[in-house]
Simulated assay, not measured.
Amino acid sequence: MTVPDQNFVDPSNPQRQEQHDHHEQTRSAPSAPPQPPPAAQETAIQFPPPAGTYNIPLPPHDQQSIPNYPPQAPPEYAPPQAPPVYVPPQARPVYAPLQPGQYHYIRPGPALPVLPPANTEGWKTGLFECFDDPVSALMAFFFPCVPFGQIAEIVDNGHTSCSTSGLMYVLVTVCIGLPCILTCSYRAKLRNKFGLVESPGPDWLVHCFCECCAISQAYRELQLRGWDPSIGWEGNVARQIQQRMVPPRHQAMTA
């Protein structure tokens, strides 16, 4: 059995012959490279864009979402600041030795603060020496507001009267029941006034357990230092002025 040739064309069939000739021409012609699809027409970009290029109307919902900012003022002009002035360093003074008869002047410096003297002086009367002045001891026991008011007037240099301090003592005693809160502060003022030591214990402890003895001790201490609490601040000041003005009694002239 023979296989028919695929290139054989029957000359009696003109349509077949025409198709064969067209196929042969297509095969013998050189194949052209594939052409790319037509590209989109390129447009030149202008910068800056012409006016009205971006004036594209927006949809209503987009126009409402854009806030309407007011126009801002241009920034204020700040003039340039002048450069700092250069100050050349000063030359150090040249030390010259002193000649005979010459002296250096030393400028006085600021005064140093004067510290208060420490409380180192002892008491002239003891805490339990109440029998040295029985009257003040009895007053401190039965009517402590009276001697306390007299002591407070002397310690405060007359700024607080005896009646005011005594009334404060009564109010603290009635309302709180602890007059030592008030009296211990005046014991500290008395010690600072005369530079006394804190003896035999802290002020609050002495007045808390020995209130009457502490008031009597402060009363006697003022008497021993030349102050009479019974006549008040003005009476003591007048007495001291009178003592300074009295001339000495015995004067003798020597040749």
Rank of each mutant, 00 (worst) to 15 (best):
P117A: 14
P117H: 09
A118K: 15
T120R: 09
E121R: 12
E121L: 15
E121M: 03
G122S: 11
G122A: 10
W123A: 07
W123T: 07
W123D: 03
G126D: 13
L127Y: 12
F128Q: 07
F128G: 09
F128M: 15
E129R: 09
C130T: 13
F131R: 08
D132Y: 07
D133L: 04
P134H: 04
V135W: 14
S136Y: 00
L138H: 08
F141R: 13
F141K: 12
F142H: 08
F142A: 11
F143K: 12
C145P: 00
V146R: 03
V146I: 14
P147A: 04
F148L: 01
G149M: 08
Q150L: 03
Q150T: 01
I151K: 09
A152N: 06
V155W: 03
V155Y: 03
D156Y: 02
N157C: 09
N157D: 12
H159A: 12
H159Q: 14
S161W: 04
C162N: 08
S163F: 09
S163L: 10
S165F: 04
S165P: 00
G166H: 02
G166D: 06
M168Y: 08
L171Q: 04
V172P: 03
V172A: 10
T173Y: 11
T173L: 05
V174E: 02
V174H: 02
C175F: 15
C175D: 05
C175I: 14
I176D: 14
I176E: 09
